Amino acid sequence: MNTPADDSPKPPTYRRSAGSPRATARRRELLDRVTADLATNGLVDFSLRRAARAAGTTHKVLLYHFESADDLLTQAILELRERRIGNALTAMAAPELHTLADRVRAMWPILLSDKTGLRVLDQAIGLTMYDPARYATLGREASRQYLPTLLAICPPHWSEQRRLEVSWMILATLRGFLVEWLTSGDTTGTTAGLEALLRALEREESAES
């Protein structure tokens, strides 16, 4: 697997952004541009130079606002995940959805709709497994980002432990389905698996608390 090139100076020789309102706005602008490039072109062969071209600036400016190429890559991937989570939350907020199974069913097509963005996030998980010392944050943050959303859609009367168990089951299962769908294109298999997950959630909700 080709990993993103780490072509930033070591140690960094440029002073960090001090966090002023102007610097914060500029950092946001740069991150949005790099995130857009990542969503379109993926993260294979990602580098600080490529990011600078996408952002219309120089690598020195990027290193003023971000610690390194890896830091910029991580922030862009976190941003992509946040957008997907936001879209999923919108879908699950529909007033006609009352059960956990209904909400997960509504979330699934949203997760599938952005195939390019999904492929980037799948590549990020691959990086985590390929080089955990360097990219462990990408794997940890994936779960930290998604779990609060899943916990929030569980029935409020459930115990904290029960909500955590079911949320992890949903997260791990959907993640597996998405990887299978991306790598094999087997929509029949993933659809069948999703229906089995939904039935399991219906049984879980119908069980006595």
Rank of each mutant, 00 (worst) to 15 (best):
residue 55 A to D: 03
residue 56 G to H: 01
residue 56 G to K: 08
residue 57 T to E: 02
residue 58 T to N: 12
residue 58 T to S: 15
residue 58 T to W: 15
residue 58 T to A: 04
residue 58 T to C: 13
residue 59 H to E: 06
residue 59 H to Q: 05
residue 59 H to L: 08
residue 60 K to Q: 14
residue 60 K to Y: 01
residue 61 V to W: 11
residue 61 V to I: 15
residue 61 V to L: 12
residue 61 V to K: 02
residue 62 L to K: 07
residue 62 L to Q: 02
residue 62 L to G: 04
residue 62 L to H: 04
residue 63 L to Q: 03
residue 63 L to V: 11
residue 63 L to C: 06
residue 64 Y to T: 15
residue 64 Y to P: 00
residue 65 H to P: 00
residue 65 H to D: 06
residue 66 F to K: 00
residue 66 F to R: 00
residue 67 E to K: 02
residue 67 E to M: 02
residue 67 E to D: 07
residue 68 S to R: 01
residue 68 S to V: 06
residue 68 S to G: 06
residue 68 S to E: 03
residue 68 S to H: 05
residue 68 S to P: 03
residue 69 A to I: 07
residue 69 A to P: 00
residue 70 D to I: 07
residue 70 D to F: 06
residue 70 D to V: 07
residue 70 D to K: 02
residue 71 D to E: 12
residue 71 D to Q: 01
residue 71 D to V: 06
residue 72 L to Q: 00
residue 72 L to R: 01
residue 72 L to I: 06
residue 72 L to V: 06
residue 73 L to D: 05
residue 73 L to Q: 01
residue 74 T to G: 03
residue 74 T to L: 12
residue 74 T to Y: 15
residue 75 Q to L: 10
residue 76 A to P: 06
residue 76 A to Y: 03
residue 76 A to Q: 01
residue 77 I to M: 06
residue 78 L to R: 06
residue 79 E to I: 10
residue 80 L to I: 07
residue 80 L to V: 05
residue 81 R to S: 08
residue 81 R to Q: 09
residue 82 E to K: 15
residue 82 E to V: 15
residue 83 R to E: 11
residue 83 R to K: 08
residue 84 R to A: 14
residue 84 R to F: 12
residue 84 R to W: 10
residue 84 R to V: 12
residue 84 R to K: 14
residue 85 I to W: 14
residue 85 I to E: 08
residue 85 I to Q: 07
residue 85 I to G: 03
residue 86 G to F: 15
residue 86 G to A: 15
residue 86 G to K: 12
residue 86 G to D: 14
residue 87 N to S: 12
residue 87 N to W: 05
residue 87 N to M: 13
residue 87 N to I: 10
residue 87 N to R: 13
residue 87 N to G: 04
residue 87 N to Q: 13
residue 87 N to H: 08
residue 87 N to D: 09
residue 88 A to I: 09
residue 89 L to N: 05
residue 89 L to M: 07
residue 89 L to E: 09
residue 89 L to S: 05
residue 89 L to K: 03
residue 89 L to Q: 10
residue 89 L to D: 08
residue 90 T to N: 11
residue 90 T to S: 15
residue 91 A to Q: 04
residue 91 A to M: 09
residue 91 A to C: 08
residue 91 A to N: 08
residue 92 M to F: 07
residue 92 M to S: 13
residue 92 M to K: 01
residue 92 M to E: 00
residue 93 A to Y: 12
residue 93 A to E: 13
residue 93 A to H: 12
residue 93 A to N: 14
residue 94 A to F: 14
residue 94 A to Y: 14
residue 94 A to W: 11
residue 94 A to V: 11
residue 95 P to W: 10
residue 95 P to R: 04
residue 95 P to T: 10
residue 95 P to S: 09
residue 96 E to R: 10
residue 96 E to N: 12
residue 96 E to P: 01
residue 96 E to C: 08
residue 97 L to P: 00
residue 97 L to E: 05
residue 97 L to F: 08
residue 98 H to F: 05
residue 98 H to P: 00
residue 98 H to N: 13
residue 98 H to M: 11
residue 98 H to I: 10
residue 98 H to V: 09
residue 99 T to N: 02
residue 100 L to H: 11
residue 100 L to K: 03
residue 100 L to R: 00
residue 100 L to P: 15
residue 101 A to Q: 00
residue 101 A to P: 01
residue 101 A to Y: 04
residue 101 A to N: 03
residue 102 D to L: 04
residue 102 D to M: 12
residue 102 D to R: 02
residue 103 R to C: 08
